[in-house]
Design a protein around this nucleic acid. Structure first.
Lengths: 331, 331
DNA sequence: TTGAAAGCGCTAACAG
DNA sequence: CTGTTAGCGCTTTCAA
């Protein structure tokens, strides 16, 4: 890319200011001039330098996305929504795979700051003080997705985890289940752990159902941990008729365990899961799932960024249950 | 970010040239100066502008990745490999979801060019003349991943699709299967379609096995198409004992269809698949699969980019079969 | 070991 | 409608 704006200006016999106006769709030139310049651009194969533009206008046209792990269906689905809106509004997106690692995350944050991104999407992770303070100081739009915080004034887009878990448990209860197990993330996880556990317990309580802490087995949202958790639950001989797994992958793990044990879903045990990514559909039986509008969350969040929103509003998106074939009705 | 290099220079009582040398780890300053400047940087919270640096040095520190669809496990796994290496070498990665759309792809290419990316990873798609010519003109490292071309001199990283399909089919034959179906991508797909079909046919021929074109059903590598393809195969009453699906997702579709039909894998029918992403593991029975080292492909490719390689070398990575529980031995 | 100064390629007043 | 010019915040000679 040797050719620059002044080459174009010379070639078209105008000043660089005019060329600039034209490539930026401002006004202040005749149709004739415009055509001449556009021809020059064509002929020379000119492509304006984003770096120079960014430096001069203080706009990089770039957005940063921080996520714990690109390879989960949840993240990649979100990413698709984000990327779609970003592209349609002329932004590029830089991805940062944090691996849930603090140092790595801070290093990404620094890089994004240096690259002068115009906004940051912070996904699925707890906003630590260190992150929050750094983000706040940046002075650019920051949107939290599938997470939220009261400590920092960032807008956030998520679903109501407590209510969703409540509704899912309630769904099982309405199907006649009374002995319901839970495969959950860590209680210390204040976003995707605790609230879902609380919702589950509350639904049980509200229905006047007895439950014990040992009906809950813990995992890390991933497949393997779902196997282990289901094995634990099984070993406890709780006589469960249904299990609620708070991620698709953990549900698949449970399914895999049950299959190996010769147990059938939903005849021997019903399963519901949380998220409803493609994972819930790919399996057999297909899983009845609490649907989070993941792609839409990404789109919403990116939209907020593009609109430069910085007020600490909370967009709580609707969840709903998608019935498939993994729950048996007992009524 | 109001503060810039000259603020730091002033604060430290040196020239901006010295500050520049220090933040770039060049030499030409005393230890004392260095410390003074570093303190100034700390105190002021200075972060150099990537835009300005990029403009001045003609290095954006950014790499572009074009892929057909972020949400497939294949793409996101590749992305993880790419991203890991990129971050370790100090590069940021911009993702571009092409949706296999020509206009969209060209638009991304233009954006990447304007952003002055230092390299481009082109994933899983056929390199059309339009793409190839544009990419070639950019004059930056371009690496093809999971695709290749002889028409343009780009290095590429992939596995030998023909041989892999041959080996997979051969594997089934060695397990005693003689009537083997194929669920494949389109024949017109010169990368992931035709070569795999050819490998399959060759293995059959070499083993002296009869086969007919109607043992092949076509899909688009995705789940739904796997269901449909398996249904077709089933409807043709071919008396198959095994089916080879050329993607994990299509195999899952087949599995799902069979399950609904009350057929058991591997007892009633054996299944093998191609790719071996997490999808092959998440299901039950877990799928015996032809493993492509996907993450490694991403790492290799990114490594080539970082090393600035531009010779048209071909890196053909090793594939191998991972045995799980979806193939029944007939011998 | 240091600094001055000329770009890098553009945007954005300002002047005409 | 158009051009001049002063930056934007760096890197990189070239001199000292």
């Amino acid at each position: 890319m040797a050719i620059n704006i002044s080459d174009v200006a010379k070639h078209a016999g105008v000043s660089i200011a005019t060329v600039s106006r034209i490539i930026n769709n401002l006004d202040g030139y005749s149709q004739k001039t415009k055509e001449r310049v556009q021809r020059a651009i064509e002929e020379l194969g000119y492509e304006p330098s984003g770096l120079a533009r960014g430096l001069a206008s203080n706009k990089s046209g770039t957005i940063g996305v921080l996520l714990p792990c690109v390879t989960t269906r949840f993240s990649s689905t979100l990413l698709r929504g984000i990327e779609r809106i970003a592209h349609s509004k002329g932004y590029s997106v830089i991805i940062c795979n944090t691996d849930m690692n603090g140092e790595r995350t801070m290093s990404y944050l620094r890089t994004l700051s240096e690259k002068r991104v115009e906004g940051i999407l912070f996904i699925s992770e707890w906003v630590t003080d260190e992150y929050g303070e750094y983000l706040a100081k940046l002075g650019i739009p920051v949107v939290l997705v599938a997470t939220h915080t009261t400590k920092f004034p960032f807008p956030s887009v998520y679903t109501d985890d407590f209510q969703a878990a409540y509704d899912t448990t309630r769904y099982l209860i309405e199907k006649g289940h009374t002995r319901i197990g839970l495969i959950s993330g860590d209680v210390k996880d204040r976003i995707a752990g605790k609230p879902r556990i609380d919702g589950y317990k509350k639904a049980l309580d509200d229905a006047g159902l007895d439950w014990q802490e040992n009906q809950i087995a813990y995992g890390d949202f991933h497949f393997e941990s779902g196997i282990a958790a289901m094995a634990m639950l099984d070993a406890r001989s709780l006589n469960l008729s249904a299990v609620f797994a708070t991620s698709d992958e953990m549900a698949l793990g449970a399914l895999s365990y049950l299959h190996r044990r010769g147990m059938e879903v939903p005849n021997d045990l019903s399963i519901v899961c949380y998220d409803d990514t493609l994972d819930a559909v790919l399996t057999h039986p297909a899983l009845t799932a609490l649907h989070q509008p993941i792609e839409e969350m990404g789109e919403c969040a990116m939209d907020l960024i593009c609109r430069g929103v910085t007020e600490a509003q909370k967009l709580v998106l609707e969840h709903f249950i998608v019935e498939r074939d993994s729950v048996r009705s007992l009524v």
